[in-house]
Amino acid sequence: MSTPATPPTKRRQQIVQTYRMAKKTDRRIGLYTLGAFVLGALLGFAVIWFLPGDGPISLALSIVGALLFGLLAAIIVFGRRAQAAAFGQMEGQKGAAASALQMLRRGWKTDPVVGFNKQQDIVHRVVGPPGIVLVGEGHPQRVKALLATERRKHERVLPETPIHEVVCGRGEGEVPLNKLVKHVTKLGRNLKGADMTDVLNRLKAIDAHRPPVPMPKGPMPTNMKGMRGQQRGR
């Protein structure tokens, strides 16, 4: 019986998996990451080297500073390019918005596919500080009608809770996939912790009458949470 992988091992596996996935669409991700490390290391070495002091201690501190600055720069560049590559691969696929919304931090709850129609237009729901955010994917006109239907359902149960509608896409008035998380987090702060708990409890009345809906099948990156951690350098 094999022993569970240690956290550092899991972390390395996650980085390798992310790199391989990003490499499919970003051939230069390794080159840019290496370049960021070198430039960061040079900057870190120079900054500490020119501080007051000399001798072996100054040299040792400069080397440590170079490694730390270089690693930080590499993590930032790798995280951003990996995330951009993931969004590029997901663009246009059903359920891509739900995968992107998984990058939201604690204090948010994402429910994929709370609404759908025969044409496979879908609506996801996010509950967080702004209130309820309904995110639609699909044909612009059909998805707007689907969003309106879902809004009415939610207003019957939560008439005083702010409800926001967002269409994910590249059309006029739509939010691109790579900007979706940022857009959602900037919708304001209307709910506090206790309010959000009450909203989630009351939403169970709606969800209890929904048939189970599987996420659309297809090749989709599933490591978005891992990329979020890498981009933040953790």
Rank of each mutant, 00 (worst) to 15 (best):
S2N: 08
T3E: 14
P4L: 02
A5W: 01
R11M: 04
I15L: 14
Q17M: 13
T18Y: 00
T18M: 14
R20D: 10
R20Q: 12
K23T: 08
K24M: 06
T25N: 00
G30Y: 08
L31R: 08
F37L: 11
L39F: 12
L39W: 01
V47Y: 07
V47M: 05
G55S: 00
L59E: 12
S62H: 09
G65R: 08
L67D: 03
L68Y: 07
G70F: 03
L72R: 09
A73G: 02
V77G: 05
V77L: 07
A82L: 09
A84R: 15
A85L: 10
F87I: 12
G88Y: 06
G88W: 08
G92K: 04
A97E: 09
A97Q: 00
Q102F: 02
R105S: 11
G107D: 15
D111Y: 11
P112E: 03
V113Q: 13
V114L: 03
G115R: 06
G115C: 09
Q120A: 04
H124Q: 01
R125G: 00
R125S: 09
P129I: 09
I132C: 13
L134K: 10
V135P: 10
V135C: 05
V135D: 07
G138F: 02
R142Y: 01
R142P: 03
T149Y: 01
E150H: 07
K153Y: 13
L158S: 07
P159I: 08
P162A: 08
P162L: 13
V166H: 08
G171H: 02
E172D: 13
E172N: 11
G173H: 09
P176R: 08
P176L: 12
N178Q: 14
K179P: 00
L180S: 08
H183Y: 13
V184Y: 05
V184I: 15
K186A: 15
L187T: 07
L187D: 06
G193S: 07
T197N: 15
N201D: 14
N201F: 06
R202W: 01
R202V: 09
R202L: 06
L203F: 02
L203T: 06
P212A: 15
V213T: 10
P216H: 05
K217R: 11
G218L: 08
T222H: 10
M224Y: 13
M224I: 14
K225R: 15
G229P: 00
G233V: 11
G233W: 13
